[in-house]
Nucleic acid binder design. Structure first.
Length: 710
DNA sequence: CCTTACGCCATTTTT
DNA sequence: TGGCGTAAGG
């Protein structure tokens, strides 16, 4: 492709970024400013104009989705040679690297990647071995401390021990880490840490990758933690051809140790940095942008900038006050019905919330209103028990040292193997210095197994057989073989419950995953590759706008996405901003950034809704409207109504239906009923209704949406 | 070793 | 409220 064509349709700042050749480059890219466009065009420009070899370029992102989108777009620009550009997430980049080079630091090729759940299980073992009271030292807390240590590149032996708690954490960290190693496993954070350690211990390997990756680009740089920063810095140490793209205003992962200093101090860390700001927004209407700018301007700790747009002014941002979370949901449903009549497609609409549990009510109301919707987040497909069981078997085939998978698979389905028997096996295993598989293959030599010997030997022989034949089988065949020989499928089929049936359905869906992998990987059928892909995939990666349904997701998951219509829900003090941030200025600023991210997802229409009462955690709470609402541009008074960016609606002011006794009504929750009495005025006007299903209820007309029927 | 009961606790979660 | 994880009993 003609390299000049790549500059077309780019604004001057974008062009400057795309044309940047060597040396450090910092791109501050506001929301919707065409950041991905700049990265992909720069990759293409490096290749087309500067004749850089595709294989010498590395682009790192945080999500698989971002990575594959980027790869597709580069391919669109320069064709199939794009496949030689390495575009990858931090984690899968490191996983692949360790798969090749891990042996240098004692990580065997078939290593398993432990997800958060596996880590928790391992943590429990560690706690009990250390005799630590899980009340005083909950595994979540311990793992959090370990994770923070790893994200800051603090090794177990370097962990401070200035307090009793720190001493215990250090003990925990050490044992946890050595157990990971015994299992030939790494956790998510380890993928990065171990790669950095590898580079530090083996400069010749680092050199190899420095030479290979002459040009490095990092997306969402504001979300990198210290260890990721070191990784990138090591790779770029020689040539300094590093380009990072980020937006400090969209930093919403500090609780995962994302270090905002990485972006704020990039210019110090890399002298002679060229800095480019992308402030023109191509996504949202003026009014949406104005609302977002106004909210974020209340943050003190930020690089000053103001997004602007040439887009139309658009509709006002709508603030809606609902009486309760049910009314909030109902308003959204009604509004969506209205919009669809005007031609808006369901897939153009997203509903965002601070926490997953908020989705429940909205889902109920959507179900009642027959509105198609897809919920992202919550339980990951791969977190379902039946999938994890199957994965445990697969992992054991790839890695016979994996203690977590062994503990899971050995007694699923039930084989009568409990903690006592497992302890005996582990003891033997440690004495012999063998893998679980090799230990079980000589189960005869394990003392005290008694009647369990037979079942264990059978288990081991099946396992051995699958391990030996894995290369001849596709993943699909391997999985089917596991289900058969382990008796897993039989177990589910015998259960015959609805739940078992749905599990079988999920397993069938899993087969479609294996099949698609088999297709792609053809005959190289790599089990490691498959497992890696599964471990590093997230729920949002499955997001596709193909189905015609409204999307439900947390604001965190929505980052990087855009929708023509966005509902941001639950704007209440204590919920959003969350109660834990109310007394911490830094956390409050992060909540505000979250709000900024939420609003800037919207292209044409943005709704901000809140409820005056909310049933949460078994209690009704009465929260003030979120402070972020008061940080919006002022609502217009009548004379100025044209200019305003925001319009406020409420359902309290709506005329309640004119009811009298004898009217038939329908209520969204209680169903049909007959009004027997109406009394009171205004806000306290209430109706007594006898419902077919639940009998007499007294309902405030302002809150209860009663519809009159004939 | 497996089932049931109770009591606790409760954001966000790119990988 | 409800989901989950531990503790006691079968």
């Amino acid at each position: 492709m003609n390299s000049e064509l790549l500059l077309k349709n780019l604004n001057p700042q974008q062009q400057q970024a795309v044309q940047h050749h060597t040396g450090p480059l910092l791109i501050i890219a506001g929301a919707g400013s065409g950041k991905t466009r700049v990265i992909t065009h720069r990759i293409a420009y490096l290749i087309a104009h500067y004749k850089v070899k595709p294989m010498n370029i590395l682009a790192v992102t945080f999500t698989n989705k971002a990575a594959s989108e980027m790869q597709d777009r580069v391919k669109g620009l320069i064709g199939p040679v794009a496949d030689f550009v390495t575009i990858s997430t931090f984690h899968s980049f490191c996983a692949r690297l360790l798969r090749i080079e891990g042996e240098h630091i004692g990580i065997k090729r078939g290593f398993t990647i432990y997800d958060a759940n596996d880590s928790e299980n391992l943590a429990k073992k560690v706690l009990s071995e250390l005799n630590l009271d899980p009340k005083r030292f909950p595994e979540k807390m311990m793992l959090g401390a370990v994770s923070t240590a790893k994200n800051n590149l603090i090794l177990p032996e370097d962990y401070p021990e200035d307090s009793f708690t720190e001493e215990k954490i250090k003990q925990f960290y050490k044992l946890y880490q050595s157990k990971l190693r015994e299992s030939n496993a790494v956790d998510f954070d380890d993928l990065i840490v171990q790669t950095v350690l590898l580079f530090k211990k083996h400069p010749e390997i680092l050199k190899k990758y420095q030479d290979r990756y002459q040009y490095i680009m990092v997306d969402e740089y504001q979300d990198t933690n210290h260890t990721q920063y070191i990784l990138v810095a090591l790779l770029a140490a020689d040539h300094k051809n590093i380009c990072v793209v980020g937006d400090d205003d969209q930093s919403i992962y500090s609780w995962r140790d994302a270090d905002i200093r990485n972006i704020l101090e990039f210019e110090k860390d890399f002298p002679n940095t060229t800095t480019i700001k992308l402030e023109q927004n191509y996504r949202s209407t003026c009014r949406i942008l104005e609302a977002a700018n106004s909210v974020i301007s209340h943050n003190l700790n930020r690089k000053p900038k103001t997004l602007w747009t040439e887009n139309p002014k658009g509709e006002k941002v709508i603030v809606y006050r609902a009486a309760s979370e049910r009314h909030e949901a109902q308003f959204i449903a009604d509004e969506i019905k209205r919009l669809t009549k005007k031609g808006v497609r369901l897939k153009d609409i997203a509903i965002l919330y601070r926490m997953n549990s908020q989705s429940r009510v909205i889902e109920e109301v959507f179900l009642n209103n027959n509105l198609p919707h897809v919920i992202y987040g919550g339980i990951r497909f791969y977190d379902r028990a039946e999938i994890k069981d199957t994965l445990a078997y697969l992992r054991l085939i790839a890695n016979p040292y994996d203690t977590i998978s062994f503990n899971r698979a050995i007694n699923t389905p039930r084989r009568g193997i409990g903690p006592a028997t497992i302890a005996k096996i582990e003891q033997s295993k440690e004495m012999l210095g063998l893998s679980y598989l090799d230990t079980l293959l000589q189960a005869k030599s394990i003392p005290g197994l008694g009647g369990k010997l037979k079942v264990l030997t059978e288990f081991a022989e099946n396992w051995y057989h699958l391990t030996a034949t894995q290369d001849q089988l596709t993943i699909t065949e391997l999985v089917e073989s596991i289900w058969k020989t382990s008796g897993y499928m039989e177990m589910l089929e015998n259960e015959g419950t609805d739940e078992a049936l749905s599990r079988i359905d999920n397993l069938k869906e899993f087969l479609s995953v294996t099949k698609s992998y088999d297709e792609r990987a053809k005959d190289q059928g790599s089990l490691n590759g498959f497992l890696e892909e599964i471990s590093l995939i997230s729920d949002i990666d499955r997001y596709s706008d193909e189905s015609n349904a409204v999307s439900f997701m947390t604001i965190h998951s929505a980052k990087g996405l855009e929708f023509p219509v966005v509902f941001v829900t639950g704007l209440e003090e204590g919920l959003f901003p969350s109660s834990r941030s109310l007394y911490d200025e830094h956390q409050m600023e992060e909540e505000r950034r979250l709000c900024y991210v939420a609003i800037t997802r919207a292209m044409h229409l943005c709704y901000l809704t809140y409820a005056e009462t909310r049933f949460l955690w078994g209690q009704t709470s009465y929260n003030m409207p979120s402070r972020f609402l008061s940080e919006l541009p002022d609502e217009a008074d009548d004379s100025d109504t044209e200019k305003a960016a925001v319009s406020v609606k409420t359902n309290s002011g709506q005329p309640s239906p004119d009811l009298k006794s004898g009217d038939k009504v329908v209520h969204e929750k209680f169903g049909k009923g007959i009004v027997i009495e109406v009394k009171g005025e205004g806000a306290s006007r209430e109706a007594a209704v006898v419902f077919d299903s639940s009998g007499l209820k007294k309902l405030l007309l302002e809150y209860a949406k009663l519809k009159k029927i004939d």
